[in-house]
């Protein structure tokens, strides 16, 4: 790593003059300036994947859209995070997610503490225009402390990343592809039979929906703690 001081870039986000270091993303700088850009797959401290596409923003001068979570700031860049076009895309993407799983908030343990739900509320989604696909998915409650409900999984892979990158167990991964993609523990066996799972619960706490939850939580009782991740990450950096 070079020891040269990072260069600072100045840019505009939503017509506000802001600045960021050259290795920072649009999302980093926006958050520092309390500009809210929605995202479901991104968690600071985990490698970015750019898969949920909710953080897409416009950059003046380009017809393309850019994922704010992986696009680095550039000098003179003019970023638009809110527009009618973006709002309509974000809504449709959320509607697609709702149509693809079996998300019934009213009976969900994460009701009221769900990132998918609150994003939908923020974007004013009150109905889903796409037909529900009603995949027949299972609930795995074999783990002593946790449950995975594939019906509520949006495949953001936060669990996969935190387990591999932070806990180091790599119990989770994704199997299959396309609409048949699922999260799996070890060799697609019951979570409770996993020999690699340390039961640390990081995956559960980072899951944005009610897909990974603590056992025994009743409806709307599952609220998650996310503060541990920045803590672990900063403690590790401090130790270096």
């Amino acid at each position: 790593m070079s020891t040269a001081p990072a260069r600072v870039k100045t840019l505009k986000i939503d017509d506000r003059d802001v600045s960021g270091r050259e290795e920072e993303t649009i999302l980093d700088v926006a958050r520092q300036n309390r500009i809210n850009i929605p995202t479901l797959c991104h968690v600071p401290g985990l490698s970015p994947v750019g898969s949920c596409r909710l953080c897409l923003v416009e950059i003046k001068g380009s017809p393309k859209l850019f994922p704010a979570c992986v696009t680095l700031v550039r000098e003179g860049m003019e970023v638009v995070t809110k527009s009618e076009r973006l709002a309509s895309y974000r809504k449709m993407i959320l509607e697609l997610l709702f149509s693809d799983g079996n998300h019934i908030c009213a009976v969900c343990v994460s009701n009221g503490n769900c990132e998918l739900q609150s994003l939908a509320q923020n974007l004013g989604i009150d109905s889903i225009r796409f037909p529900y696909r009603f995949p027949k998915l299972t609930v795995d409650a074999s783990h002593q402390r946790f449950v995975v409900d594939h019906n509520r999984c949006i495949l953001c892979a936060r669990c996969v990343r935190v387990c591999g990158e932070v806990e180091g167990a790599h119990t989770w991964d994704l199997m299959g592809r396309g609409t048949s993609m699922r999260i799996i523990s070890d060799m697609n066996e019951a979570w409770g039979d996993s020999e690699t799972c340390t039961s640390c619960g990081k995956c559960v706490q980072l899951c944005p929906t009610g897909a990974l939850v603590e056992k025994g939580k009743s409806v709307a009782e599952m609220s998650k703690k996310k503060g541990f991740l920045p803590y672990i990450v900063s403690m590790r950096e401090g130790r270096r």
């Binding site: 009976v107 299972t138 609930v139 449950v147 056992k215 939580k217 009743s218 409806v219």
Partner: peptide, 14 residues
């Protein structure tokens, strides 16, 4: 069928 039992009260209330 297939749902965890502790979701039942809320589900049944529906």
């Amino acid at each position: 069928e297939g749902r965890p039992f502790y979701e039942m009260p809320s589900l049944m209330a529906r």
